[in-house]
Simulated assay, not measured.
Amino acid sequence: MKRAVIVRAKRTPVGKKNGMLHRLELQELAAPVLSHLAVGLGENIDDVILGNVTGPGGNIGRLSALEAGLPLSIPGLMLDRQCSAGLEAIRLACYFIQGGAGSCYIAGGVESSSTSHFEKRARFSPDSIGDPDMLEAAEMVAKKYGISKELQDEYAFLSYERSWEAFERGLFVEEIVPVEQWNNDEEFFKKRNMEALLRRAKPISENGTVTAANSCGINDGAAAVVVMEEETARSSGFMPVLRFVDSQVAGVHPFYPGAAPIPAIQTLLKRNGLTVEDIDLFEINEAFASKMVACSQELSIPYEKLNLGGGALTVGHPYGASGAILVTRLFYEVQRRHGVKYVLAAIGSGGGIGVAVLFETVQENGL
């Protein structure tokens, strides 16, 4: 079987809804990332696969590739698995390579909540089951797993501190392709008193635990990676960093989307004869602190392995791009560390869907 490897990864700065990137449509957000990743690849790119959730419809993959000035021969594809879309795009590209359908893909996602034409989200579940708002679903996860507001606030504060530390150390610089004059995430324009915000924030429901402060924002941004067949990458002078091992998608009750990564990760690890102890780094999308605490507790993932540079609770959650941001973060983090063998990216999404992707590091990178 052919092996898929990731050789490049980039993202835009993440902007707040109606914030610094508010004028840019989807293809304008994605184009700088695609242009950067495509340098030296030209018509060797078999396809561009982009995830998107709230955009205007149409083939955003094709539109963005054209906006980026990529060769007309690259067809482009848009897919939607809600918040898992960016990670699903990378997963799909890896399987295309394993199956011999191609040898080079750009895969990721893009979201512009600011320019979305839709006032309300799509339906995730029929009325016969129930279709809760995502904040309500986060509260349901908290109640199901007995997660207090204090535990959620503790995690949200940890994420905030980690994000700011990573920013101040300049760790995000190599991830980011500037967009217009912007080269930093909007959240880092001004530091907040997060302890006070968490303390003052009121739960969204009576006797609840989920607040605006321990939940992610709504954001704009794009991210993508170059996935290549390993021998093709080496013969073309590209250095593989992450090698695709396996992946898993799982479904849970639509009331508990934040818990969906749990069975996906469990099945993926079991099938590959691995345990949580074998995974050196986890990146799980921080849509809500209740989700993160649930995943950590149920899977016994120590915080010392989880989202070491913070995540969406601070930087933000551009839905279709977030899964690709997770992989981009891992791509650079493993290059800063020694002794890392396995890493895992996972995300839960509306409707109760979890996606988990397992990678191994490529040892000749000095890891």
Rank of each mutant, 00 (worst) to 15 (best):
A9N: 05
V14S: 08
K16D: 06
K16A: 02
G19I: 03
G19A: 10
M20G: 03
L21T: 04
H22Y: 04
R23G: 15
L24K: 09
E25Q: 05
A30I: 04
A31I: 06
P32K: 06
V33E: 08
L37N: 07
V39W: 09
G40T: 06
E43W: 05
I45M: 00
I49N: 00
G51Y: 02
N52P: 00
N52G: 11
T54Y: 09
G55R: 01
G57C: 06
G57S: 06
I60C: 06
R62H: 13
L70F: 15
L72G: 13
L77P: 03
M78N: 05
S84Q: 06
Y95I: 01
E111A: 09
E111C: 11
S112T: 15
S113M: 15
S113D: 03
S114Q: 08
F118Q: 12
R121S: 12
R121H: 13
A122N: 14
R123A: 13
F124D: 08
D127N: 11
D127P: 07
S128N: 07
I129S: 02
D133H: 14
D133A: 09
E136K: 11
M140L: 14
M140D: 03
M140F: 10
M140V: 00
Y145H: 11
I147C: 03
E150N: 10
D153C: 08
A156Y: 04
L158Y: 00
E165Q: 15
L171M: 12
F172L: 12
E174S: 13
I176C: 00
E180D: 15
W182I: 14
W182Q: 07
D185L: 01
E187H: 01
K190G: 00
K190A: 01
R192H: 12
R200W: 13
G208D: 13
A212K: 02
N214V: 11
C216I: 02
G217F: 01
N219W: 02
D220T: 01
V226R: 03
E231M: 11
R234W: 14
S235F: 02
P240Q: 06
P240L: 10
V241I: 15
D246W: 10
S247R: 00
A250F: 07
F255C: 01
P257W: 10
P257F: 08
P257L: 07
A259K: 02
T267L: 01
T267E: 03
L268R: 02
K270C: 00
G273I: 07
L274Y: 11
V276T: 15
D278K: 08
I279A: 02
E283W: 02
N285F: 09
E286G: 09
A287C: 10
F288R: 02
S290D: 00
K291D: 07
S296T: 02
I301M: 04
E304R: 14
E304M: 02
E304V: 03
N307L: 11
N307H: 13
G309V: 00
G320M: 04
G323I: 03
G323T: 08
Y332H: 15
V334W: 01
L344E: 03
A345G: 02
I347F: 11
G350N: 08
I353A: 01
G354C: 06
V355W: 05
A356W: 08
F359W: 11
E364Q: 13
L367W: 04
